[in-house]
Amino acid sequence: MAAYSVADGAEVARQVATLPDGGSSDSLCAGAWLSAAGERQAFNDDFTLLAGTVPGPGNKGKTATAFSVSGGSPVSTGPGATASDDRAPVFQSGTSTLWYVTGDRHLTSRDLKQPSAAPADHGTAPGQSFLLAGDRPWVRAPLEVTPDQAAVAPGGTVAVGSNLLWRRTDPAASFAEQNVEPAVLGPSLNGRAPVPGSEAMPACAARLWFDDLSLLCNARNTLLRVTFAPDHSRVDKVETLIPEEQGLIPGAVLSPDGRSLAFLREWAGTVDLYRLDLSAGAAPVRIASLAAGAPTGSGGVGRDVRVIAWQ
């Protein structure tokens, strides 16, 4: 994990972690198209810990844990850890509280800054994985959408995963969520109706929400801002934020003030980091080339490189 200066692209810090045998961080190994929340929740508040699992006692099952970003050693699992088959560990945003689903389907959390504290049981989880929106889990995702692809709107009533829009009928319920049949952002697909106003959109994957009505969407070689009507019943506007060009645009994150984006561009074996001011007529500015230190995917391109946060 490396940190770069937004001003001049200088590398200001780097940490390398080698996970122990059997250790895994599934939320960063799940695929190329993850939401910003899905990637950020792999890390705790200060990026010192990475959520993951290690083999349980006697190499049976898995135990949720976190690895030190400086070195890769797992932290103590604390009291109450068993050989249950834990799944889907993520950090609650802005904290060092690790959430996960146990083998007996209980949603559980543990504050890793208090290693002697017992885990908190949040009741039965209706699914094996989830995405946190604040301290509320979205534990049921429709059809082929996986939780680490889903981006939940700040109001907590709708989400977009891949190119599907769905909503919770009762956002106050912690463990009895029911999702309505999703609608498609873009042309009709598999018999599902498109969200009106989105029919001409290119295929794109949800990345993050600017606010409760405005979504950043990753098309293959560009970024789109999709603006919904107040009740999310239609798309009022689709804006192309960067010119379509050769190369893959795998992800982007917002600046702390919400006025700029940082994003990656992959092309011909190189990975570059860019900044884009969200003002009319602004052009992308290359911050740094990451090619020298970037790991590469099976196709020779840096598919494993993520842009996680703008601090």
Rank of each mutant, 00 (worst) to 15 (best):
L224D: 14
R220F: 06
N221I: 15
P196H: 04
N218F: 00
N221Y: 07
L213D: 14
R225W: 11
L216S: 07
A206V: 06
N218M: 07
A203Q: 10
R220K: 09
D231A: 07
W209A: 11
R234Q: 15
T222P: 01
F228E: 13
H232I: 03
F228K: 06
N218P: 03
V226L: 01
A219K: 01
G197Q: 10
N221A: 12
L213C: 07
R192V: 03
E199A: 14
D212A: 09
L224C: 00
M201I: 08
D212N: 10
A219V: 09
P194C: 09
D211G: 02
A203Y: 14
L215A: 03
C217K: 02
R220C: 04
F210S: 02
A200R: 09
D211V: 04
V235S: 01
R234Y: 05
L216T: 00
A229R: 13
A193Q: 07
H232K: 11
D212M: 10
R220N: 07
S198P: 14
L208N: 07
F210A: 05
L216K: 02
L215E: 09
P194T: 01
T222Y: 00
H232P: 08
L216G: 11
A203F: 12
A203H: 14
V235M: 13
G197S: 06
P230M: 08
C204M: 14
C217M: 06
A219G: 05
N221S: 09
S214I: 00
N221G: 11
L208V: 11
C204K: 02
R225G: 08
T227A: 04
T222C: 00
R234H: 08
V235Y: 07
R207W: 06
C217W: 04
W209L: 14
C217H: 07
L215F: 00
V226C: 02
L215H: 02
R220H: 12
D211S: 10
L208Y: 05
A203E: 05
F228S: 09
R225F: 08
V235G: 04
L215Q: 11
G197H: 05
W209K: 06
V195H: 07
L215K: 06
R220A: 10
A203M: 10
A200C: 06
T222A: 03
C204Q: 02
L215W: 06
P230E: 09
G197D: 15
V195A: 12
L208W: 07
P230R: 15
L224Y: 06
A206Q: 00
P202L: 01
V226A: 08
R234A: 14
N221E: 08
M201E: 12
L215D: 03
T227M: 10
S233C: 04
A219F: 06
P196E: 12
R220P: 15
R207Q: 13
A206E: 01
G197E: 15
L208A: 14
R192E: 05
A203V: 09
T227N: 15
S198E: 15
D211C: 06
L213N: 09
L216M: 12
L223F: 11
V195D: 13
S198H: 10
F210W: 13
H232M: 15
M201Y: 11
